Amino acid sequence: MSPAAPSNQKARTILQAARKVFLEHGFSAATTDMIQQQAGVSKSTVYAHYPTKEKLFIAVVEAECESFLSGMQRIEFQPNGVEALLHQLANTYLDIVLSPVALAQYRVLVGEAPKFPELAHRFYQAGPRAMIRQATELLSRAAEAGELDFGGLSAETAATAFANLVRSELQQHYLLHPEARPSRAQIEQWAETCVFIFLRAFAAKR
């Protein structure tokens, strides 16, 4: 089992408590006392599993990213199905980045990045870059099947462009309007627009 998913029940309890405290208060304002009280364990138990607040925050971030990306990892390329693949990628990614937890986590990480750049870097690698790696693999298969043509660009560049296009407007809007929630229809309409634009750029000419 990965470090992001501890097998010990007390470690999982601490991680769940830390997740709640960090998302409510941010990293700087959160204290070990808050986390210990939320978890219902002693401070020594917290430190036995997570020696520093930074290590605990990293564990929370990586566990959340692992949970979010599990849906992406189940997506597979099917021959003659690149449009359906892109729709699935776009909708799944939007469901991730627009979830209340992901938006709250993103706000915390952006706010803390100047003080704790390593924390932000770990999130970037475990979240956005992991999604792009998964999309790169899938889009490479579509290109190998002759369904996409990147025109000399790499599959990674195309995947990065797609990911940025997908999350751009809606993520920006809901990061700055925390009281609002997107509808299913809104998400699907934006996904449709992103797929249309991407295919206009990279669909292979038949």
Rank of each mutant, 00 (worst) to 15 (best):
A145F: 04
G151K: 14
S140E: 13
Q189I: 14
T31P: 00
E83G: 04
L170F: 00
T52I: 05
R107T: 08
P114G: 13
E179P: 00
H87L: 14
T92Y: 01
V97R: 00
Q38G: 04
S183T: 15
E76Y: 05
H173T: 15
T52S: 03
F150D: 03
H87S: 09
L176C: 04
Q134H: 12
L56G: 00
R206D: 10
A113L: 03
Y174R: 07
V82F: 00
Q172M: 08
M34Y: 04
G152H: 02
R184D: 13
A17C: 06
I197S: 09
I187Q: 07
D33L: 15
S154L: 14
Q16W: 11
E118N: 07
A185P: 01
W190D: 07
A158W: 02
P3S: 01
G127Q: 02
Q134L: 12
Y47N: 02
T45I: 10
H25F: 12
T13R: 13
A18I: 15
K43G: 08
H25L: 10
R133F: 01
K55Y: 07
M1W: 03
L15W: 09
D95I: 06
M1A: 07
H49A: 09
A130K: 07
F77N: 01
S140R: 05
V46R: 00
M72N: 09
A180S: 00
A163V: 13
L85K: 01
I197C: 05
Q78H: 08
S42C: 08
S154G: 15
R184L: 12
A204V: 15
E112C: 01
Q105H: 03
K205R: 11
V60D: 05
T31R: 01
L56K: 03
V61E: 02
S140G: 07
Q73A: 12
V101A: 00
F68T: 01
F57R: 04
V110D: 05
E54C: 06
D33H: 12
E76T: 14
P178C: 04
A18D: 11
F123N: 06
A18G: 14
A142D: 06
H25G: 01
N8S: 11
I197D: 08
F202T: 07
R184M: 10
G152M: 05
V166S: 04
K10D: 07
E24D: 12
